[in-house]
Nucleic acid binder design. Sequence first.
DNA 1: GTGAGTGCAAATGCTTTGCAGACGT
DNA 2: ACGTCTGCAAAGCATTTGCACTCAC
Lengths: 154, 154
Amino acid sequence: MDAKQSPASAEPSYVERLRRQRVRVTPQRLIVLEALAAHSGHIAADEILRWAAARYPAINLATIYRTLDLLISIGLVAQTDFGSGVSFFELVGDAPHHHLVCEHCHAVLEVEGNVLSPMHESILREYGFLTNTRHLALFGSCRACLAALESKVP
Amino acid sequence: MDAKQSPASAEPSYVERLRRQRVRVTPQRLIVLEALAAHSGHIAADEILRWAAARYPAINLATIYRTLDLLISIGLVAQTDFGSGVSFFELVGDAPHHHLVCEHCHAVLEVEGNVLSPMHESILREYGFLTNTRHLALFGSCRACLAALESKVP
DNA sequence: GTGAGTGCAAATGCTTTGCAGACGT
DNA sequence: ACGTCTGCAAAGCATTTGCACTCAC
């Protein structure tokens, strides 16, 4: 739904989208958005802090969290837990994708959204539950670790 | 796979399985296992503490966590994060199932394992990634909240 | 000018750890 | 008896909150 947004421009529309939500446009908020845009895959709060502090040294972690909460509540950002006690954040707006988290080497692969659509459909059909396409991490073993495990237990 | 285990008896095989792993059989460990067996769905560490303290008052949260780590490392227990900063634990041995966590009312539904097998297969085929059947929570909207949302935004 | 937004510091909640004593083998 | 396990208390970590000040509107 709604495919009308400029493909590769990052800066100008954010200001507009914040204004549309009647929230103030502050340098901190724009910088958090830039940090998210720069790491389009996924990024943790303290990584945002490091990134942001490089260009706005006074910025504070509490502000990062408050900003992320705001951006989530207005639908600009999605939050994902990879099971390590740390939350990761990403901009909503790219193609939907999910994360495969390797429990052995902790690598994170990204999966196209449509790989999971048959699952979404059967869960919706059988349980009446609409799975959120943007808040999903699957745990398991990546190809490399799988090979390593098989060579040990043949 | 392997359907050979007594259906409703809980105590004797645990002792054996602990011994087989060369770890000591202590009342604390058995009580944690009993707590897990009693809540076969999923249970958080502090709920285990409450349950265990009722029959072994001296037991300590740190012990619960250490015991859970041990049980996970020997493959008796699985850990799941529902995205709330709290970990949930369950015995490995029941039929595989996953969890549907409603982001609105925080209800947790259980899904049969095979609903997700087409997804497992396509991910294995396309990414060489073997998803862990026992460490999975899907977030989204349950039937009731879905209905409530639709009536607000028709 | 005013209230939303921020920085600072302290608090929170879950989980982990160091150490001395206890208990399973 | 030995070495593992436990209880206790304190630390650790990501995240949240209270409060006074600041800045976007």
